[in-house]
């Protein structure tokens, strides 16, 4: 009997979480290399209260995952020689820190006082031979689309891109970093290209997000109405059926 209110409530809880995720997408609409996320909502079939084949069992709403859309973001020209964008889906720059390797699409790099190519947080970027070291006296570094870095016409290293067979193995760590939580080993991404002097914008589509926002808000109201009606129904039945004279 109380199922209607509980079903409404289960939907409202997932809607709140959807709102949190849409809010995060919108907050990161201008974040370099950000990938849009979506809550995956499914049906959770409730157990039948009694073995009645005619009445269908109640189905609740349950969120069972967050999906990430790894589609390419728009490339934006910055005019800075140490900004790199990846042109190709599902490929990542590899960086290292105290906790091992992390992966990022944010290619706004810089060099530290020792000439090592690092991210804005100071994490060294990995090439085919480990850290990449540049000599500032050899002029600006030029990077080819395959990641070959040359200074003054001479190659000094190669930026490599990592790719995973299953992108679901990656979890987000904040600061634009992804970590590998599975046993899967990264392989070299050969199809993706590196573009120098550009950064990849986020792939958040503001129109879609605003539409989601309206949809979430209206569904939430509808569910509130449903809960109200269910409550109303039980209150009235108590009033009518409960009168003894």
């Amino acid at each position: 009997m109380e199922n209607a209110a509980y079903i409404g409530l289960s939907r409202q809880m997932t809607l709140r979480r959807e709102l949190d995720i849409v809010a995060n997408n919108i907050a990161n609409a201008e974040t370099t290399g950000f990938k849009v996320e979506q809550l995956l909502v499914g049906t959770e079939v409730g157990e039948r209260a009694r073995n009645d084949q005619i009445r269908p069992s109640a189905s609740f709403v349950l969120d069972n995952g967050v999906g990430r859309d790894f589609a390419q973001g728009a490339l934006e020209q910055t005019g800075r020689s140490l900004d790199f964008a990846i042109d190709g889906e599902g490929a990542f720059f590899t960086v290292t820190d105290g906790n091992g390797e992390a992966y990022t699409r944010d290619g706004a790099f810089t060099i530290d006082p020792e000439g090592v190519l690092v991210t804005k947080a100071g994490l060294p970027v990995q090439g085919d031979g480990g850290d990449i070291i540049l000599d500032p006296l050899q002029g600006p570094a030029t990077v080819g689309t395959d990641g070959t870095i040359s200074q003054n016409g001479l190659p000094v290293g190669r930026l490599t891109l990592a790719r995973f067979d299953a992108l679901g193995a990656l979890s987000k760590d904040g600061d634009g970093l992804y970590r590998n939580r599975s046993n899967a080993q990264p392989i070299e991404a050969t199809g993706a290209q590196i573009r120098q002097g550009m950064l990849e914008g986020s792939n958040v589509n503001s129109l879609v997000e605003i539409t989601n926002l309206i949809e979430i808000s209206r569904s939430y109201e509808r569910m509130a109405k449903l809960i109200e009606n269910a409550n109303d129904l039980s209150r009235r039945s108590v009033e009518r059926l409960g009168s003894t004279n």
Binding site: I21, V66, D106, A108, S171
Partner: peptide, 12 residues
Amino acid sequence: TGIQVGLGVKAG
């Protein structure tokens, strides 16, 4: 995939 909810944005 799990459910990871991001808590916003900061200036890098």
